[in-house]
Design a protein around this nucleic acid. Structure first.
Lengths: 248, 248
DNA sequence: TAAATAGTGTCTATGAGACATTATGTA
DNA sequence: TACATAATGTCTCATAGACACTATTTA
């Protein structure tokens, strides 16, 4: 259907826009929440923030915040993804361009927030492990910490954030095989073993070295990955380093 | 981050909720829009409604409408999916339970609506072809029509609805192979040829009869499909009728 | 030299694609 | 009988899983 109020429309679109005034319908509050994932200490972790205010004061929650929404027809505020990137930067200290970000799902059931109707558009972000340690409590001095996703049920997250996290994990697991998101969780140059380890942490099972290498080699032949001239020292035979070339 | 206003929180959560009043942040309007798909005349079609009001008056648009959002903390209105099902019923006359419905994506860029900031949570619906002809203009007597998706670019849909439709088509195409959505576009009992035709219309290419049958037989062996005792007459040799058994 | 990890090769099962053939109804 | 569509079978190729084996470095 249309999105118009019930008043009969005036002659021209310009006149109508001119005369348009909001307020006939109650409006929901709008937030973005972000499932920020990385791999630290060889574990899949999610960034959580301890709430300083009611409701759920003291509980862990996903980073997020209100979307800046303009009142006027000539100032409508920021785009949704822009809001997500801004919150991410504010609360993690990560530069805006350095992180993979994608819309996940929108959670908007009535009473998901006890205060008022709040719609949250959830995003998920993947942070390369070499950037993750830099994450600092943001400008509002919130307490931010990485938590292993396995430990989560015990934490009893605020709101429906546990559910949001589960949806994010399903999404990431589902996209692992047919997309390039694994490269977002590995440094700019990486070994086959490191990439395999990322897959293993996300899928939650051991993967065969040979079979993984075979798939990797196909990506190499397709030009999606390039070999560098460098090696990564290990406890034994050093491993070749590769780089994601981005073509697809 | 948290979703709280900047006032310092009072002692208890109860007192805080009591004292909570909205209005510090401007809020966006919230709608749901629905990409209603079916297969009619052997073509993939989408249900469109002609707008009676500005903006985009006279243009074709996706069915949809405002989400009922309560003002009070003890009346927060209807769930998002509930709103989508309500709109679908109002504008198509289809019974609420009879249609597959799933959230698609949320479109909320600034200025996507010229009047004011409107966030739309898009859903897509799949209507079995035997129900599709019943679709009537809804209670608001809107002009509703099925359009072949191939004809769409010429129609110049209102708002960003063309984009929403494209995202829906990508989603449906992507889920065709690994999910059961194809069964939502076929009558309760169907022939292999009819199911294959659904795949062909969505993928936009001819599929090999033998290869399709092989996949179909696997679903039969798994018990996801059952054979009925009936036959569907055709212009030649009649075809066996099958039924989706729903297990997965 | 032992241990550890990198890197390679092989066998098998499964499924997709292309295509040929048979079966059974209608006109 | 001609024809159309249903239904089945066959060959090849690509890929996944399981697993054995070789190579190269460190301690």
């Amino acid at each position: 259907m249309d999105h118009d109020p019930k008043t009969p429309p005036p002659q021209s679109e310009e006149a109508y826009l001119e005369g348009y005034r909001e307020g006939r319908h109650p409006r929901p509050a709008l937030t973005v929440d972000i499932v920020v994932l990385s791999i630290l200490d060889n574990e899949l972790k999610v960034l959580l923030i301890r709430r300083k205010a009611h409701p759920f004061r003291g509980r862990w929650a996903l980073p997020g915040g209100f979307v800046s929404v303009g009142d006027a027809y000539d100032d409508q505020g920021e785009d949704l993804e822009q809001a997500a990137r801004r919150e991410l930067a504010e609360e993690t200290g990560l530069a805006e361009g350095s992180v993979f970000l994608e819309q996940l799902y929108t959670f908007g059931d009535a009473y998901r927030d006890p205060r008022t109707r709040i719609i949250t558009v959830a995003y998920y972000a993947l942070v390369k492990p070499d950037l993750a340690p830099q994450v600092s409590a943001g400008s509002d001095a919130a307490e931010a910490e990485w938590h292993a996703v396995g430990d989560l049920p015990a934490l009893e997250l605020a709101f429906d954030h546990e559910r949001i996290l589960q949806v994010a994990l399903e999404r990431v697991r589902g996209k692992l095989d047919y997309s390039d998101i694994a490269y977002e969780l590995v440094p700019d140059s990486f070994t086959i073993g490191e990439l395999r380890s990322v897959h293993e942490r996300i899928e939650g099972r051991k993967l065969d070295r040979g079979n993984f290498r075979r798939r990797f080699n196909r990506a190499l032949e397709d030009g999606r990955i390039e070999q560098t001239t460098q090696l990564r020292p290990t406890s034994a035979r050093p491993a070749k380093l590769y780089r994601f070339s981005g073509r697809r």
